[in-house]
Design a binder for these strands. Structure first.
Lengths: 229, 229
DNA sequence: TTCATGGTTCGATCCTCGTCGAAGCATTCC
DNA sequence: GGAATGCTTCGACGAGGATCGAACCATGAA
């Protein structure tokens, strides 16, 4: 019944929240495994598998099997272009859609992105880590790493890096922050930082929401620990 | 549960076939009424109204009421950019999606687009009309017109132009042909040509399908009437 | 005013599609 | 060879949403 090449098909592929999250996660250009993508999208691996299959059938993703892992990437720059265009449109219209009113600015300053911190404050942290040379920019698979200075700094925050190293999950990953259009820190270190800051009562999650409130003490401490510029 | 500006929201807006058709129809930049859009999308006006509301809420469309009509347009060039990007991607991946096998090439050469002809042959007709100066390129609202030469030519095909003039529908409209990425002829003249060619047994619609078969005689006659270049 | 036309809202129906549990392959490690 | 891990397939469930009939507003014409 429909005409021409399926513009609706592509649209509906992007139109599902889970698939949109998968595409967003892949916008970094990195190859991610099916389970990583499932975690990013907040769904089980079965569901992710179904979505990934659909995205592959739609030609948006390509797969590279390597050992018992399957790495997925955007199938080409055109796909990135489309996603970016849609994101630009969504961002542009974004503030026209603020039906939540006062909550929205709160979301923008700090919120939870799956299990790590996102928003203003998270971007500030990421920038600060990078500017001070704490992150290695190893663009190869698996994400960023910590420099020796970085390891000392993070340990100084009260985080057990050895424990994190045991996890199969990459330590650091850059995660695009769409309210800021900049990177923030994901990966097991990102999650550990969120935990640690909550322990210290610097941050508190609002129940039933993704908004994170920053205590006055926390705000001061975090700004001291992660100076801008 | 979802992160950032609703890329999924935009996606799902584009993702419905009816809405995709509406957006495609508006890609010309012209303002169309709700009923026209309903016809383009092949749905009832109630359904169209619902879709138009959603597209407006999503910020993709703007509305201008004028008398008892409501004209809809894309709300800005960014929207056009997005739709175009998606169309480019869909066209690029298009041939990967040919699950219908042998039917697809048939669709590509000739098919029905609502009530007029689309595909190879339709593009050829449109080009021929334009190259020979039969169409006026009046870019203002309402579509193209016929030159004096054009009127004579069309009358010579056995079409009653005066009768068509009585309809409220624009005589000629350019309709983008996505299999060819070129224009073909829509509007009441487009519909009349399809009827006429069917009367003469040059074309025959396959029942239950949008594919149109061209008879050998029809092929010869049409190529003679509408020479390429 | 009355009638006709363009659009919208409401309600009911139907169906697609996302989701997850359970089971099944494949691969790699012990 | 097991055993464990990564991933996919199958099946069933449930929700969201597309669709259209009918009724309802708004505008313009007679």
């Amino acid at each position: 019944m429909k005409d021409g090449p399926d513009i609706a098909r592509i649209g509906s592929l992007i139109g599902d929240p889970a698939r949109a999250n998968i595409l967003s996660a892949l916008m970094s250009g990195k190859a991610l495994t099916a389970t990583e993508l499932a975690a990013e999208a907040g769904i089980t691996s079965q569901t992710a598998s179904s979505h990934l299959k659909k995205l592959m059938d739609g030609g948006l993703l390509t797969q590279a099997k390597q050992g018992r892992h399957r790495y997925f990437t955007l199938s080409g720059p055109e796909v990135g272009t489309v996603v970016e265009a849609v994101m630009g449109l969504a961002a542009g219209k974004g503030h026209l859609r603020t039906r939540t009113g006062p909550k929205d600015p709160a979301m923008r300053t700090a919120r939870v992105c799956y299990d790590h911190l996102a928003g203003d404050m998270a971007v500030r942290i990421f920038d600060s880590l990078q500017n001070r040379g704490f992150l290695t920019d190893s663009a190869d698979k698996g994400g960023l790493g910590l420099t020796e200075h970085g390891r000392r700094f993070v340990s100084g925050l009260g985080i057990d890096l050895d424990a994190l190293g045991l996890s199969r999950r990459p330590l650091c990953r850059a995660c695009l922050d769409w309210s800021e259009r900049r990177n923030h820190l994901a990966g097991s270190l990102g999650a550990a930082l969120l935990d640690r800051f909550q322990q210290q009562a610097w941050l508190r999650r609002q129940t039933g929401s993704r908004v994170v409130t920053v205590s006055p003490l926390g705000d001061a401490e975090l700004r001291k620990l992660f100076p801008a510029e």
